[in-house]
Simulated assay, not measured.
Amino acid sequence: MSKKAIIPAGTGTPIAPFVPGSLADGILYVSGTLPFDRDNNVVHVGDAAAQTRHVLETIKGVVETAGGSLDDVTFNMIMLRDWADYAAINAVYAEYFAGEKPARYCIQCGLVKPDALIEIASIAHVGRG
């Protein structure tokens, strides 16, 4: 098995020992993605929809850097801080996955920074290589 780190241009230094994505045998694993700017500050504090859009744009960048598109995403793991944000998160999520939806799960939990309202990790099949 070959494994390749996927790091989009302009990516900041992670707050822990990981890379944004890891591609192995055509399967891309996208690390848990929080609504961070390149300096690891939370963006759009208090706005779950804007944070979701930021997270999905970041994931899109990782997938595209690996040679795929969001259509290649087969599974999303969604972690949210408060169920009160569920509808706002789903509204934005539906914009990004308008066609055939990937499988997913969604749980409520504490996140690494208190102002972060959402985190998403993804799996995509972007071909063999």
Rank of each mutant, 00 (worst) to 15 (best):
S2Q: 15
S2F: 06
K3W: 05
K4A: 09
I6Q: 14
P8A: 13
A9S: 13
A9F: 05
A9Y: 07
G10V: 06
G10S: 04
T11V: 09
T11M: 14
T13M: 13
P14W: 05
P14R: 14
I15G: 13
A16C: 13
F18A: 14
P20I: 13
A24D: 11
A24V: 11
D25G: 13
D25K: 11
G26F: 07
L28H: 07
V30D: 00
G32R: 15
G32S: 10
P35S: 12
P35L: 12
D37H: 00
D37R: 00
D39N: 14
N40C: 08
N40I: 00
N41K: 14
H44W: 04
H44R: 15
V45F: 01
V45Q: 13
V45M: 09
D47S: 12
A48H: 11
A48S: 12
A49K: 15
A50H: 02
T52E: 08
T52C: 09
R53M: 03
R53T: 03
V55Y: 00
L56A: 04
T58Y: 00
K60E: 04
K60A: 05
K60G: 02
G61E: 05
V62S: 04
V62M: 06
V62E: 02
V62A: 03
V62F: 00
V63Y: 00
E64N: 07
E64S: 04
E64D: 01
T65M: 04
T65P: 03
A66R: 10
G67P: 01
G67H: 05
G67C: 04
G68L: 05
S69A: 05
S69V: 01
S69C: 01
D72E: 04
V73E: 03
T74Y: 00
F75S: 06
N76M: 09
N76P: 01
R81K: 10
D82W: 03
D82N: 14
A88Y: 04
A88E: 12
I89C: 06
I89D: 03
N90F: 03
N90H: 09
V92C: 07
Y93L: 12
E95G: 09
Y96N: 00
F97H: 10
A98I: 05
G99Y: 02
E100D: 12
E100T: 13
P102W: 03
P102L: 07
A103F: 02
A103P: 05
A103D: 09
Y105G: 10
Q108P: 04
Q108L: 06
G110F: 02
L111Q: 10
L111Y: 02
D115R: 14
A116Q: 06
A116K: 11
A116M: 08
I120L: 01
I120D: 00
I120C: 02
A121P: 04
A121I: 07
S122I: 09
S122N: 11
A124L: 08
A124G: 01
H125L: 12
V126H: 10
G127K: 15
R128G: 09
G129T: 14
